[in-house]
């Protein structure tokens, strides 16, 4: 028996089982909790498929941020009159009681649609050429001109710079639109809904220095090994959220100007790089000189880490903060 194959089969079985129960279970809290383990199994799959960068990001997002967001929102939605009941029925916390319940025809239609779509996808994947290097060779040929040694970082911050830039733009847009939804101008005076206790404060006091260390370590790893701005940013966000939950100073005590500045730092830094390279003689826009590209990428990474951390923690704090209006 081949052990790697056994591992694959177990992992895929777990993934499918978890996502089936996640979507099918009638208890909403069960689904919320299963979502956390879905992230865990996915990151095991990333390790198995030799994508450690993604496993790192998934570990931070799946185990930390997604759990916080979903559990916090679930707690906020939990119907108050049903608190004494042990199990929440799915009816009790339904959000859209005005639309009709899905009937058998609806389910059949959905099933047919999904079934044919999955079959089509399967055909498309089977049709993929069996061999091929994709872009691996191209990336490795130009790697020594990129200023970093790790191919994924090179793709993110040099070869496909536009993608990363616009992605930071998406993050800023998400933060600004959530401000609109919550009808606020900044994060100040948003508090967690319960008074923090001593135990939690001590715990967070102990964890914070380690987290700062991990953020710096991941950022430093970025240029030669799996790690970098994304992973470091997510850990930074987790740290800010923990600080906020325990009542320490966090981004909620920043002034509006400072908060906005850190929100757009990553995007602005990349814009600055674009403008400078565009106005430089004998260089095309976003083409970095080889001797400078390492330094430019490092500066952009630091700014992007700050922005990602601030945006993601603002998203969580804005959607979990006590509703006072």
């Amino acid at each position: 028996m081949n052990l790697t194959l056994l591992f694959d089969v177990f992992l895929i079985a777990a993934l499918l089982l978890v996502s089936w129960r996640l979507l099918g279970a009638s208890d909403l809290f069960q689904a919320t909790v299963l979502f956390i383990s879905f992230g865990l199994f996915l990151s095991l799959a990333w390790i198995r498929l030799q994508a450690p960068d993604i496993a790192l990001a998934e570990a931070a997002v799946g185990a930390g941020l997604a759990g916080v967001l979903l559990l916090g929102t679930f707690k906020g939605l939990e119907p108050e009159e049903d608190r004494e009941g042990e199990n929440l029925s799915s009816e009790a916390c339904r959000l859209d009681p005005i639309s009709p319940c899905p009937g058998r025809a609806h389910l059949l239609l959905a099933f047919t649609f999904v079934g044919s779509m999955t079959a089509l996808l399967l055909l498309a994947v089977l049709d993929l050429p069996a061999e091929g290097d994709g872009l691996t060779l191209l990336v490795f040929q130009s790697l020594d001109r990129s200023g970093v040694e790790h191919p994924v970082t090179a793709v993110l911050l040099n070869f496909r710079f536009y993608d990363t830039w616009l992605e930071l733009g998406v993050l800023v847009a998400a933060a600004l639109s959530i401000l609109c939804v919550r009808n606020r101008l900044d994060l100040r005076e948003l508090r967690p809904s319960k008074v923090p206790d001593v135990m939690l404060r001590r715990l967070v006091m102990g964890l914070t220095p380690i987290m700062i260390l991990v953020v710096v370590y991941l950022l430093w790893l970025g240029d030669h090994a799996p790690g970098g701005a994304f992973q470091a940013g997510v850990v930074l966000a987790a740290m800010l959220i923990l600080l906020w939950f325990s009542g320490h100073a966090s981004i909620t005590s920043l002034s509006r100007i400072l908060w906005l500045f850190s929100l757009i730092a990553g995007f602005a830094m990349m814009l600055l790089a674009a403008v400078i390279t565009a106005s430089w003689p004998e260089m095309r826009p976003l083409e970095f000189a080889e001797e400078w590209s390492g330094a430019i990428i490092l500066a952009i990474e630091v700014a992007a880490t700050l922005s990602i951390g601030v945006v993601l923690s603002s998203l969580a704090i804005l959607s979990l903060g006590a509703v006072e209006d």
Binding site: D53, A57, E58, V61, G134, A154, F230, V234
Partner: peptide, 13 residues
């Protein structure tokens, strides 16, 4: 192939 990996990394965030 590092290109899809980078795409997924942005995708996750």
């Amino acid at each position: 192939d590092p290109v899809p990996q980078a795409m997924v990394l942005t995708g996750i965030v």
